[in-house]
Simulated assay, not measured.
Amino acid sequence: MKRFKEKTVIITGADSDIGRATATRFAREGANCILVGINHDLLEYIYKELPQDHTWINTGNHLTITSDVNDPTQIVRLIEHVLEKYEHIDVMVNIDTAVGIHQSVIPYLIKTKGNIVNVSTLTAIAADWNINTYKAEQNSLTDTTKAMALKNAPNGVRINAVAAGLVTTDTSSNPFLTHSPLGKTATPVDITAAIMFLASDDAAMITGVNLPVNGGVSASS
């Protein structure tokens, strides 16, 4: 079943391992994917991997946009470009990007009763990293997500988040791993599974949630 057939999905931070996995999964489930990032060559590489539905009236389902979503002017051009091609926006996935783009996209999500999934990742362990700092950052993400969700719920727009923890395919030991009750770190595919659930109609009654995908680190003392 293609849960996102004919849905338009903007993915910021698409030029990342999680972005690549997320775009691939959305495309396989029928979505039109807009890949947004700052690495043009990488975005084009990911674009060429995505399944397409070529027909006589459709020359391609997906789109790449090289853009800095921290720049309000570039955000305006990005949205104009998306609407010109697809006419509507149904889902926005923000991977390690600022939330400033939200206010520009929400008016269009109101029209489609769409949703936003913010993704916070720990892609590396700094020398001064500690578990208390990590948990404090996730608490801040939870508070921000709740506030945005409550503000936009009356308009039918759901807003959730995924706290991805350390995301890696490296199986060697690291400071984060020692805090994981499951004894492992998440992979990009693990994070994508959570994103897909929160963005889908399966989560129609879920908003304001920060879903930890970190091997149980958030549950540990």
Results as ranks from 00 to 15, higher is better:
residue 138 Q to A: 03
residue 47 Y to P: 05
residue 217 V to A: 03
residue 185 T to H: 05
residue 125 I to G: 02
residue 59 T to F: 11
residue 59 T to Q: 12
residue 215 G to T: 12
residue 7 K to T: 08
residue 22 T to A: 10
residue 211 L to D: 09
residue 195 I to L: 02
residue 142 T to F: 01
residue 193 A to Q: 05
residue 119 V to R: 01
residue 26 F to H: 05
residue 59 T to R: 12
residue 212 P to G: 06
residue 54 H to C: 00
residue 149 A to Q: 09
residue 185 T to F: 00
residue 11 I to M: 07
residue 148 M to R: 07
residue 33 C to S: 10
residue 129 W to I: 08
residue 108 Y to D: 01
residue 153 A to G: 09
residue 187 T to H: 01
residue 142 T to Q: 09
residue 50 L to N: 01
residue 83 L to A: 05
residue 189 V to N: 11
residue 1 M to Q: 07
residue 176 F to T: 02
residue 140 S to Y: 11
residue 142 T to W: 00
residue 191 I to P: 01
residue 201 D to G: 12
residue 106 I to W: 10
residue 153 A to T: 14
residue 131 I to C: 07
residue 175 P to N: 09
residue 87 E to M: 14
residue 64 T to A: 11
residue 117 V to K: 06
residue 133 T to V: 10
residue 151 K to Y: 13
residue 29 E to A: 08
residue 193 A to R: 06
residue 15 D to K: 01
residue 106 I to L: 11
residue 133 T to R: 12
residue 47 Y to Q: 13
residue 208 G to P: 15
residue 18 I to T: 07
residue 120 S to A: 12
residue 120 S to K: 08
residue 132 N to W: 13
residue 215 G to I: 08
residue 215 G to Q: 06
residue 164 A to P: 02
residue 62 H to V: 13
residue 125 I to D: 03
residue 151 K to Q: 14
residue 92 M to C: 13
residue 66 T to S: 15
residue 26 F to I: 11
residue 77 R to Q: 12
residue 206 I to W: 13
residue 32 N to G: 02
residue 209 V to H: 15
residue 9 V to D: 00
residue 74 Q to G: 04
residue 73 T to R: 13
residue 6 E to A: 11
residue 3 R to I: 00
residue 147 A to C: 04
residue 54 H to F: 14
residue 162 V to M: 01
residue 35 L to N: 09
residue 142 T to N: 02
residue 81 H to L: 07
